Amino acid sequence: MIRGIVINTILFVILTYIFSSTGLFYVSSFGVALLASIVLAILNVLVRPVLWLLSLPINILTLGLFSIILNAVMLQLTSAAVSNQRFYFSSFGASLLIAILMSICNAVISGLFVD
């Protein structure tokens, strides 16, 4: 869990730097990125199972692709919980793009650090 928080914090900072000129995604500081990662971890433990269960039929119909939408929703909830001025996405499409990029990066990094 701690490793995931650290990885997400670093990913938030890197993705903010990459998308800084576009305005799609903004994190005001490293501390806010750390706070957002902690909030995301808490939401993933408390809220995600409920959302996953409610969306199970559509997730089955889309062969699991709806999970990307759930990841974007979790990022939007994180943005709302942290503060829209310090951590925000310009649109749901932006959070969807960040969710896809974070999923890919997390999969690659997790593959590198298999216990």
Rank of each mutant, 00 (worst) to 15 (best):
P57S: 09
P49S: 07
L51G: 05
I7A: 10
R86D: 15
V45N: 09
N106Q: 10
V27A: 10
A80H: 00
L40V: 01
A99R: 10
I7V: 14
S29E: 02
G93Q: 07
L97N: 06
V27Q: 11
A33C: 04
A36Y: 05
L54R: 01
L96H: 06
V32P: 03
T62D: 00
L43D: 02
I7M: 07
S67K: 14
S20P: 04
S29Q: 02
I7R: 03
Q85N: 14
A81K: 01
L70V: 13
T22Y: 03
S67F: 06
L65Y: 07
V47K: 01
Q85D: 15
R48N: 11
A99L: 08
I68C: 11
I58Y: 04
L46V: 12
F25V: 11
L101R: 13
F113K: 01
F89K: 11
S95P: 00
A36H: 02
I100N: 07
N59W: 00
V45K: 13
G93M: 06
P49H: 11
I104R: 05
L96G: 06
V6P: 11
F92K: 01
L112T: 07
L43G: 03
I42A: 10
I69M: 08
S37T: 07
L96P: 03
L96I: 05
A72E: 09
F30G: 00
S28T: 07
V50H: 01
L101F: 11
F113L: 06
L97P: 02
L11R: 00
